[in-house]
Computed example of a mutant assay.
Amino acid sequence: MLVTVGFLGKSYAESIDEISGDKLEALQANGASYFQILFHGVIPQFVPAWINWTLFSFEINVRASTVIGLVGAGGIGVLIDTNINLFNYGEALTIITVIVCIILITEYVTNSIRSRIA
């Protein structure tokens, strides 16, 4: 959780730093208020990056949850490890197949969300 919060905080901060100042200056030069600059200049430039970083972090966490379980932190990785140690290769293969399907579905959903944004 700490790694994800730190990663997203840094990514969001960099996304805000990359906001084009030209658009903000143009809004300010035309007499826009602070909230108009925020809603028409900052948010439209920040939201796509925010969504992309959030989806990317979600994908990383879905993949990492299996690996973390394999090294002893619990979760679905423990089931894989237990079934392999008990020579239940059929069950282990089923669990791995379900994990691969979940990762592929997650990838498909996040890519379709990204394509709608871009």
Rank of each mutant, 00 (worst) to 15 (best):
L38N: 05
T97R: 03
A13L: 13
A92Q: 12
G31R: 15
E107D: 14
A29Y: 03
D22I: 09
S15K: 02
V71M: 10
M1Y: 08
T110D: 08
R116K: 11
S65Y: 03
F58D: 03
Y34K: 14
S33E: 07
V71K: 04
I103V: 15
Q28G: 02
L38R: 02
T66D: 00
D22M: 06
V5A: 12
A26E: 04
A49M: 03
L93Q: 12
I102K: 07
T54P: 06
L8V: 12
P48F: 01
R63N: 10
G21Q: 15
F58H: 09
I117S: 07
R116H: 09
G90H: 07
A92M: 11
R116T: 09
I60D: 03
F35W: 11
N83H: 12
A29G: 12
Y108L: 13
G41A: 00
L38C: 09
S33L: 08
I19Y: 03
G21L: 14
S65Q: 04
Y34E: 11
G90D: 11
V98H: 02
T54E: 04
I60E: 00
G75Y: 10
T4L: 10
T94S: 15
A26N: 06
D17G: 11
F35V: 05
N52R: 13
I16E: 06
R116A: 09
F35T: 13
I113K: 01
K23H: 06
S11D: 09
G31H: 14
L24V: 05
A49Y: 12
I95G: 10
M1L: 13
A29N: 12
N85E: 03
I102S: 07
N52D: 14
N111R: 09
V78P: 04
I16C: 04
I16V: 15
N85L: 12
A26Y: 06
V47D: 01
I99M: 14
Q28N: 12
V42Q: 06
G72P: 00
E14M: 15
V42A: 01
L79G: 10
I51S: 05
F39V: 07
V78Q: 14
E25L: 12
G69Y: 04
N111C: 00
S57A: 11
A32S: 15
P48S: 02
N111I: 00
I37L: 07
G72L: 10
W53V: 11
N52P: 00
V71N: 05
E59P: 05
T66I: 11
Q45C: 08
E107Y: 01
F56Q: 05
I76A: 09
T106L: 00
L27N: 00
S57F: 01
I16W: 01
L86I: 01
T4F: 07
I51C: 08
I84Y: 06
A13G: 05
F7R: 06
P44V: 05
V62A: 09
I68S: 14
Q36H: 10
S115P: 05
L8N: 01
D81Y: 09
